[in-house]
């Protein structure tokens, strides 16, 4: 077992190194000059050159790369050239915004998808099961931003029930915090939940057709009870795997929703930093996201290795 863990960790480190090179190179390819952006159209070439020198933009890229990676290893994400603030301080707020958004919408999606998916699996040969299935197909076909904009127009503008957009930190006013998060979370749940319903459904359909359920039913259990006893665990496992895989795509949804609802999250932060050519911020925040996804993947991998004897055996061979 320790060998497996060690192997996985080594892979993780190599993956992270690879990702960091990739990110650095893409960011270096951004046209436009940070010094020019900072000083604006009116600066003289001499002023721009002086600033480039001061920011260390004239050093060879290898040096800049090593500098950046070295800092990150020490937990320092660098300093934004534009604002003069440390990236670790800059991301503190946005991480919370995106974190809350992803957390609540994941919980919401599960709450919606589990019963609906089970229902549609159980009743798959009836009209209502079919309807749930069809509904999830439609849910998946609607662009998330459109759903968000329509929600704003109806709930916030027409009915005036909730604020149209914006964010209030939890510490500042919990009530307002919640009110501002409702619509973004709902629009993410609509889209994410629809996808999840389909995974849950096919997981349960698979379970339902397996032998032990048929056996359980033949000895007089109701379908639901059989499903509950035997199906839940199995379906739960595949659900966790799916959720793990969705970490990346959830962020995609979040970035769009952040834009619709003007939430100061990580997505809008990256978008802004690219436009401002604040390279360090782009690099470090993108890296942060990639690290998160890769670490989650590794943990899921390890869990599977621990839980599934077949994989364990194979690894040790």
């Amino acid at each position: 077992m320790p060998r497996v863990v060690l192997g996985r960790l080594l892979t993780l480190v190599l993956s992270l190194a690879g990702a960091s090179v990739l990110i650095f190179l893409v960011v270096q390819a951004l046209p436009g000059d940070l010094a020019q952006v900072m000083l604006g159209e009116r600066a003289t070439p001499a002023q721009i050159e002086a600033l480039r020198e001061r920011l260390g933009l004239n050093r060879p890229w290898v040096v800049r790369y090593l500098d950046w990676v070295g800092d990150m290893v020490r937990g320092d994400l660098g300093t934004s050239a534009l604002s003069g603030l440390r990236v670790t301080d800059l991301v503190a707020g946005p991480i919370r915004v995106t974190g809350w958004l992803v957390l609540w919408s994941t919980l919401g999606s599960i709450l919606v998808a589990l019963p609906l998916g089970m229902w549609s699996a159980l009743r798959r040969r009836h009209w209502d099961g079919f309807a749930v299935n069809a509904l999830s197909q439609f849910g998946m076909a609607v662009p998330a931003f459109l759903a968000g904009i329509l929600l704003v127009l109806v709930v916030a503008v027409r009915w005036g029930w909730l604020p149209a957009n914006g964010y209030v930190p939890l510490a500042r006013d919990p009530g307002e915090w919640a009110r501002h998060l409702v619509l973004p979370v709902v629009s993410l749940v609509l889209v994410q939940g629809a996808l999840l319903v389909r995974y849950v459904r096919s997981a349960f359909v698979e379970v339902l057709t397996e032998d032990h359920i048929t056996t359980a039913r033949s000895v007089g259990w109701t379908k639901l009870a059989a499903l509950w006893r035997h199906g839940m665990r199995q379906a739960g496992l595949s659900l966790v795997t799916v959720l793990g895989l969705q970490v990346a795509s959830l962020f995609v949804g979040a970035i769009v929703v952040e834009n619709v609802f003007v939430l100061p999250g990580l997505g809008s932060m990256v978008l802004r930093a690219v436009v401002q050519r604040d390279f360090i911020v782009v690099q470090s925040v993108v890296m942060l996201l990639v690290v998160a996804v890769l670490v989650v993947n590794t943990v899921v991998d390890l869990l599977q290795a621990v839980l599934d004897p077949r994989i364990r055996a194979k690894e040790q061979r």
Binding site: V152, A156, V157, P163, A164, V260, V262
Partner: peptide
């Protein structure tokens, strides 16, 4: 569009 919505919603 977000700006217009915020105004219409009274924010």
């Amino acid at each position: 569009q977000a700006l217009t919505s915020a105004m219409l919603a009274g924010d």
